[in-house]
């Protein structure tokens, strides 16, 4: 992606560099959302259904972490994964895996906090019915997550939006290495610093279009699901 090319030209000519960057962006952000969902959804549901001392404090912290600055998350993961850090021997710094980890840290609080709210609201509605049906704690969590699945799509999309839009964390832990850890957002930052503003804004438009497309897909899936499952 060098020379005097516009973003539109890159799309029209099927520039392989551009596609690799788009693919990596999606791979990293979607993987992070998947990991964050695996952690955040059960965690949020668990907090929604259990009562223990300090629960309120955890909810406040979780809500606050939704606004965790990406660069701070990135720095924390950087120090963790650096060769001089505790997990340095894994050799993950400056790899896509490190980027997925950093974005997972960013996205998990969003998904957990929104899941907690959604599941707690649903719990008020379902509580008696599930108690009457003698459903155990794990069964309750599973039932509530499954029955909240359409609302939880929104939580996942919020998480994806954050992951796809951020540059601070993946820049620090990924290093923006050409052909390896360069994504849409780090490319935009790089092209901006090179002064190629038209290419930067073009890439930005492509990024926005992709995010809109994914949201449209998820929304359509949600609507279809709701129609069939009420």
């Amino acid at each position: 992606m060098t020379g005097d090319t516009s973003a539109l030209q890159l799309v029209l000519t099927g520039d392989p560099g551009l596609y690799a960057i788009v693919w990596l962006s999606l791979l990293v952000s979607l993987s992070a959302v998947a990991c964050a969902a695996v952690i955040g959804v059960p965690l949020g549901a668990l907090i929604a259904l259990t009562r223990f001392p300090g629960r309120e404090a955890i909810i406040v912290v979780l809500n606050a972490l939704m606004g965790l600055p990406p660069v701070v998350a990135g720095l924390a993961i950087y120090l963790l994964l650096s060769r001089s850090g505790p997990l340095g021997s894994w050799g993950l710094l400056f790899t896509p895996a490190a980027m997925i980890i950093a974005q997972t840290v960013l996205v998990t609080p969003i998904i957990a906090a929104l899941t907690r709210q959604t599941v707690e609201d649903l719990w008020l509605e379902y509580r008696d019915e599930l108690a009457a049906l003698d459903v155990g704690p794990i069964g309750r969590i599973a039932t509530l997550i499954w029955d909240a699945r359409f609302s939880l799509v929104t939580a996942l999309l919020a998480g994806f939006g954050r992951a796809a839009a951020e540059v601070g964390a993946i820049m620090v832990v990924g290093g923006n290495i050409n052909n390896f850890t360069r994504t849409m957002t780090t490319s935009i930052a790089l092209e901006t610093s090179k002064g190629d503003l038209p290419l930067a804004i073009g890439l930005g438009i492509i990024l926005i279009m992709i995010i809109v497309m994914i949201n449209a897909l998820a929304w359509t899936a949600r609507r279809a699901g709701e129609r069939y499952a009420g």
Binding site: A34, V38, A221
Partner: peptide
């Protein structure tokens, strides 16, 4: 729809894809 099984599969799949290059990169 995104049920837990698909989520888990996606997570494992993507993790394996993402970790693979770093393993290769050793060479």
């Amino acid at each position: 729809m995104l049920n837990r099984r698909t989520l888990l599969t996606a997570a494992l799949l993507s993790a394996s894809i993402a970790f693979a290059p770093s393993a290769f990169a050793q060479d």
